[in-house]
Deep mutational scan, measured.
Amino acid sequence: HAATELTPEQAAALKPYDRIVITGRFNAIGDAVSAVSRRADEEGAASFYVVDTSEFGNSGNWRVVADVYKA
């Protein structure tokens, strides 16, 4: 099962156990969220919340930071 994305309210009520950072070329924010979901799932997380997204220069590469939560 894939890790689910939390709302800001849900994330605020929970304590993350880790923070992950992924970088890559994403065509849309949805693609980045899917990549975070896969990584969170690999780490055994039940859910995640994207904290920050930023573009690296003009290369089209993105850096996505997310907190991950157990259950």
Results as ranks from 00 to 15, higher is better:
residue 55 E to Y: 14
residue 13 A to Q: 13
residue 18 D to M: 15
residue 50 V to S: 00
residue 9 E to K: 09
residue 14 L to M: 13
residue 8 P to E: 12
residue 55 E to R: 09
residue 61 N to T: 12
residue 44 G to K: 05
residue 66 A to Y: 05
residue 21 V to K: 02
residue 55 E to K: 10
residue 14 L to G: 06
residue 70 K to E: 09
residue 41 D to L: 15
residue 48 F to W: 03
residue 7 T to C: 08
residue 27 N to E: 12
residue 6 L to A: 03
residue 13 A to K: 14
residue 61 N to E: 15
residue 24 G to M: 04
residue 21 V to A: 05
residue 7 T to Q: 05
residue 12 A to L: 10
residue 62 W to K: 04
residue 41 D to I: 15
residue 1 H to T: 08
residue 63 R to C: 13
residue 23 T to A: 06
residue 10 Q to H: 05
residue 54 S to H: 14
residue 7 T to I: 04
residue 16 P to T: 02
residue 18 D to S: 11
residue 32 A to Q: 03
residue 56 F to L: 14
residue 49 Y to A: 05
residue 69 Y to K: 04
residue 33 V to R: 09
residue 8 P to Q: 12
residue 45 A to D: 02
residue 27 N to T: 12
residue 71 A to F: 12
residue 39 R to K: 12
residue 58 N to H: 11
residue 5 E to I: 07
residue 3 A to H: 03
residue 67 D to S: 03
residue 5 E to Q: 13
residue 8 P to F: 14
residue 1 H to V: 07
residue 65 V to C: 07
residue 32 A to H: 02
residue 30 G to I: 12
residue 6 L to H: 02
residue 6 L to T: 01
residue 65 V to E: 06
residue 25 R to Q: 11
residue 16 P to F: 03
residue 24 G to D: 03
residue 12 A to M: 11
residue 22 I to S: 00
residue 9 E to D: 10
residue 70 K to Y: 12
residue 25 R to I: 11
residue 3 A to K: 03
residue 3 A to E: 01
residue 68 V to K: 02
residue 46 A to G: 12
residue 62 W to R: 03
residue 69 Y to F: 11
residue 44 G to A: 04
residue 38 R to L: 09
residue 32 A to F: 06
residue 15 K to N: 08
residue 3 A to I: 11
residue 6 L to Y: 02
residue 28 A to W: 10
residue 34 S to Q: 14
residue 56 F to G: 07
residue 18 D to L: 14
residue 29 I to C: 10
residue 14 L to P: 01
residue 59 S to P: 12
residue 55 E to S: 09
residue 67 D to P: 01
residue 5 E to Y: 06
residue 62 W to D: 01
residue 7 T to D: 06
residue 2 A to Q: 13
residue 19 R to G: 00
residue 59 S to H: 09
residue 4 T to A: 09
residue 12 A to K: 12
residue 3 A to L: 08
residue 64 V to I: 14
residue 22 I to D: 00
residue 63 R to L: 12
residue 50 V to Q: 01
residue 54 S to Q: 15
residue 18 D to G: 15
residue 12 A to H: 08
residue 43 E to V: 15
residue 44 G to Q: 05
residue 33 V to H: 08
residue 13 A to V: 14
residue 29 I to D: 05
residue 43 E to L: 15
residue 9 E to S: 11
residue 39 R to G: 01
residue 17 Y to V: 04
residue 33 V to G: 03
residue 47 S to Y: 15
residue 11 A to M: 04
residue 41 D to K: 15
residue 22 I to Q: 00
residue 52 D to M: 13
residue 56 F to Y: 13
residue 69 Y to R: 00
residue 69 Y to C: 03
residue 56 F to M: 13
residue 11 A to C: 06
residue 2 A to C: 15
residue 20 I to S: 00
residue 58 N to W: 08
residue 31 D to F: 06
residue 7 T to E: 04
residue 17 Y to K: 02
residue 19 R to P: 00
residue 67 D to W: 10
residue 24 G to W: 03
residue 33 V to P: 01
residue 18 D to P: 02
residue 4 T to E: 09
residue 67 D to F: 13
residue 57 G to N: 08
residue 31 D to H: 05
residue 50 V to I: 15
residue 9 E to W: 08
residue 48 F to T: 00
residue 40 A to Y: 03
residue 12 A to P: 03
residue 11 A to R: 04
residue 43 E to I: 15
residue 9 E to P: 05
residue 9 E to V: 08
residue 9 E to G: 09
residue 11 A to V: 04
residue 46 A to Q: 12
residue 23 T to D: 06
residue 18 D to R: 14
residue 25 R to E: 09
residue 61 N to G: 09
residue 13 A to L: 14
residue 22 I to V: 13
residue 46 A to T: 14
residue 68 V to L: 15
residue 47 S to K: 05
residue 52 D to T: 11
residue 29 I to M: 11
residue 35 A to V: 07
residue 12 A to N: 11
residue 2 A to S: 13
residue 23 T to M: 11
residue 42 E to W: 10
residue 63 R to M: 13
residue 44 G to P: 02
residue 2 A to K: 14
residue 5 E to F: 06
residue 70 K to I: 10
residue 7 T to H: 06
residue 38 R to E: 06
residue 10 Q to C: 13
residue 52 D to R: 06
residue 35 A to M: 08
residue 67 D to C: 11
residue 42 E to M: 11
residue 60 G to L: 06
residue 26 F to A: 02
residue 49 Y to Q: 03
residue 50 V to F: 03
residue 35 A to R: 04
residue 48 F to I: 02
residue 18 D to E: 08
residue 29 I to S: 06
residue 53 T to W: 15
residue 48 F to Q: 01
residue 45 A to V: 04
residue 51 V to K: 02
residue 1 H to F: 08
residue 27 N to R: 11
residue 46 A to S: 12
residue 17 Y to W: 06
residue 23 T to Y: 14
residue 68 V to D: 02
residue 11 A to G: 03
residue 35 A to P: 02
residue 56 F to K: 05
residue 57 G to H: 06
residue 48 F to V: 01
residue 28 A to Q: 11
residue 62 W to S: 04
residue 3 A to Y: 03
residue 24 G to P: 01
residue 66 A to H: 00
residue 33 V to T: 07
residue 40 A to P: 01
residue 26 F to Y: 07
residue 66 A to G: 02
residue 10 Q to E: 11
residue 39 R to A: 11
residue 19 R to Q: 06
residue 67 D to L: 14
residue 20 I to D: 00
residue 64 V to D: 02
residue 53 T to I: 15
residue 56 F to T: 09
residue 56 F to H: 09
residue 22 I to A: 00
residue 65 V to P: 00
residue 57 G to C: 07
residue 9 E to N: 08
